[in-house]
Amino acid sequence: MKKIVWIYGLIAGAISVSWGVLSESVFSNSLSLNTRMILGYATMIVAFSLIFVAVKNYRDTQGNGQITFGKALGIGLLIALIASTLYVVVWEIDFRYFVPDFGDKYQAQAIAEMKQSGVSAAEIQKQSAEMTEMMQTYKTNTAYRAMFTYAEVAPVGILMSLLAALILKKKTKTAGSAQ
């Protein structure tokens, strides 16, 4: 089981990281925040869909065609943990060495998009003040940034783990049970 969890966890992590790095290095100025967010979550769904493959692989090769909900969920959650941790570690490196001005760029783009969409000056000022405070904490507190980043990616992995466990659980029928 360890081999399956590590292989699929690292592959899922690499896939989910790919969009984050690509979007910051190539598309940060050309795509809206909403578009980047949608594409980011779509990439995470693709990455975490490997949980289905891993659970089925385990069920068919090591579980003799059987797997309980708990075992399937455990495999999925471990894969999600590995992939999410890889995502957080790569983001920390990217943030620290390649995009230390991420907060400033994000805030500037968010304000520009609010202005374009006709948000009132008072609302822009209010949201700008909130973003400035949050981004200051984000920039200076590694634990806060890591938790924030885990909160971005881990729920997708948890949801996919639950779905995979529900869909792929399979127990053998006992001799006396009805077909």
Rank of each mutant, 00 (worst) to 15 (best):
residue 160 M to R: 08
residue 81 L to D: 05
residue 122 A to D: 08
residue 105 K to L: 06
residue 164 A to E: 06
residue 96 R to F: 13
residue 21 V to N: 06
residue 57 N to M: 13
residue 117 S to P: 04
residue 152 E to N: 07
residue 49 S to T: 02
residue 127 Q to P: 07
residue 78 L to F: 03
residue 29 N to R: 14
residue 42 A to M: 14
residue 98 F to P: 07
residue 48 F to A: 12
residue 136 Q to N: 13
residue 91 W to F: 09
residue 57 N to S: 15
residue 159 L to R: 10
residue 4 I to C: 05
residue 77 L to W: 04
residue 75 I to Y: 14
residue 49 S to K: 15
residue 88 V to G: 09
residue 82 I to H: 09
residue 26 V to H: 12
residue 99 V to F: 13
residue 91 W to T: 00
residue 158 I to S: 00
residue 177 S to K: 15
residue 135 M to R: 09
residue 2 K to E: 14
residue 33 L to N: 02
residue 64 N to L: 14
residue 130 E to T: 14
residue 45 I to R: 10
residue 47 A to H: 11
residue 78 L to G: 00
residue 58 Y to L: 01
residue 157 G to R: 14
residue 142 T to F: 06
residue 144 Y to Q: 09
residue 45 I to Y: 10
residue 75 I to M: 15
residue 18 S to G: 05
residue 45 I to L: 12
residue 161 S to W: 04
residue 1 M to A: 05
residue 162 L to V: 06
residue 164 A to N: 10
residue 161 S to I: 00
residue 53 V to C: 05
residue 157 G to M: 14
residue 104 D to N: 15
residue 65 G to A: 02
residue 14 A to K: 02
residue 41 Y to S: 07
residue 124 I to F: 06
residue 73 L to I: 05
residue 110 A to C: 11
residue 19 W to T: 10
residue 108 A to Y: 01
residue 150 Y to Q: 10
residue 132 T to W: 01
residue 87 Y to N: 02
residue 171 K to T: 02
residue 49 S to W: 12
residue 125 Q to A: 07
residue 28 S to N: 02
residue 66 Q to D: 04
residue 32 S to L: 05
residue 106 Y to F: 08
residue 55 V to N: 11
residue 60 D to R: 12
residue 179 Q to C: 12
residue 146 A to Y: 07
residue 133 E to C: 14
residue 46 V to L: 13
residue 166 L to C: 09
residue 93 I to H: 04
residue 176 G to F: 15
residue 28 S to T: 09
residue 170 K to H: 11
residue 4 I to G: 04
residue 156 V to D: 00
residue 151 A to L: 01
residue 55 V to G: 08
residue 54 A to L: 07
residue 59 R to E: 02
residue 104 D to A: 13
residue 154 A to C: 06
residue 24 E to C: 08
residue 147 M to W: 13
residue 18 S to C: 09
residue 91 W to N: 13
residue 88 V to Y: 10
residue 167 I to R: 12
residue 45 I to N: 07
residue 27 F to G: 08
residue 165 A to L: 10
residue 40 G to R: 11
residue 9 G to D: 04
residue 5 V to A: 09
residue 107 Q to L: 15
residue 130 E to M: 15
residue 65 G to Q: 00
residue 168 L to D: 03
residue 99 V to Q: 06
residue 138 Y to A: 03
residue 113 E to Y: 07
residue 9 G to F: 08
residue 7 I to Y: 14
residue 14 A to G: 02
residue 14 A to D: 05
residue 52 F to N: 05
residue 100 P to E: 02
residue 37 M to F: 07
